[in-house]
Nucleic acid binder design. Structure first.
Lengths: 188, 188
DNA sequence: GCAATCCTTTGACAATTGTCAAAAAATTAG
DNA sequence: CTAATTTTTTGACAATTGTCAAAGGATTGC
């Protein structure tokens, strides 16, 4: 077991030596600068990313404004998940907010690996399940919650993001405006 | 291929005869009345359900009010997904809104099937992926959207629900109050 | 290091949505 | 079928949040 990416994955589910090597063979490690765009809008995203170190933001434009959909930091998965899974174009853009080290795996190579290695297919299922839990948790945090509750939830669950992500992006991540978040911050 | 449940699943991914039979052997078909509680709050949910016909609502209490988290109709999966996946207790309750015919499969039997049938593990991955897409779609529909936009989104995407689900439940499903939804309906 | 740019804060005000209460309508149970 | 219960609608008002504009800070690039 050689790299941080595969080490992190095996914490979800064990992998045979063969599977680890096959996965390592199709993963590429990228050292990228802040601002680099991992996925552009309007295309089918062919890659999924694992952030060894750094920070990415997934966002889209709604009525000319950027809406932050997701934030991924060290040890997490990043990408335009909807497009990657559905194999359809999507308007989401994925951009690095910090200089980052990421691992990239293509959809096609994953498909091949899944077909040949049951343990990787299982790992894939568990990773998607984990993603679903995370998304549901995020959904719950916004559902029927006030702007203050949303901010407090973020503070409780992902405090590091508050330091690392510009306020405007955090605001739309929470489904509120920058002005409202700025005022909440001033009060609390 | 004998039942509607397995037929629906094979539309996601093909299953060998052996897998189909193994799955059929652990699935139970239930004919239940309106109001029946499939999953109670505070416990680990051991079953996942497929609704052959009918309608279920997943909800929880927040400050004494019911918050509708999910609605599942004919041909869809129902249950307390968070608890089922995480194997942790959850406050969500799943209740039938109509007399329904559902198929139930236990977590334990699914685990066993996954371990022995790669094609079922793949199907599981694809089902969870599909669930993730649905949840993301629902999230997007509420993110940075007004009450009117949310209602119009529901009207566009799941018009049947508006006929079948009481207004109060639809309102909290959309993250708004009953009064607001009632007024939107009166205007549009 | 400094100018230019971008981001955040603050203010004034408007729009949206929530709250509480009561009436009207619909549904349920006997 | 009718009474009881629950749900939906409506009204009056309050609270929250959004919008626009401008000032103040911070960051970036040369």
């Amino acid at each position: 077991m050689q790299n941080s990416f595969i080490t992190a994955l095996t914490h979800f589910s064990p992998l045979s030596e063969a599977s680890q090597q096959a996965l390592a063979a199709v993963s590429r490690r990228l050292v990228l600068e802040k601002g680099h765009v991992l996925v552009n809008a309007g295309m089918v995203s062919d890659y999924i990313y694992f952030i060894e170190q750094g920070l990415s933001r997934t966002y889209y434009l709604k009525e000319g404004r950027e809406v932050t959909d997701w934030l991924s930091a060290d040890g997490e998965i990043a990408g335009s998940i909807v497009s990657f899974i559905s194999r359809q174009p999507d308007q989401r853009i994925v951009q690095l907010l910090e200089p980052s080290v990421v691992w990239a795996v293509s959809y096609g190579s994953l498909e091949t690996l899944y077909a040949h290695h049951h343990d990787l297919e299982r790992l894939g299922r568990l990773l998607v399940s984990h993603g679903l839990l995370q998304l549901q948790h995020r959904f719950d945090a916004l559902h029927m919650a006030s702007a203050l509750e949303r901010y407090q939830g973020l503070l409780a669950n992902r405090p590091a993001l508050i330091q690392r992500v510009p306020l405007g992006m955090l605001a739309s991540y929470l489904g509120i405006t920058s002005e409202t978040l700025s005022r909440i911050r001033a009060q609390v």
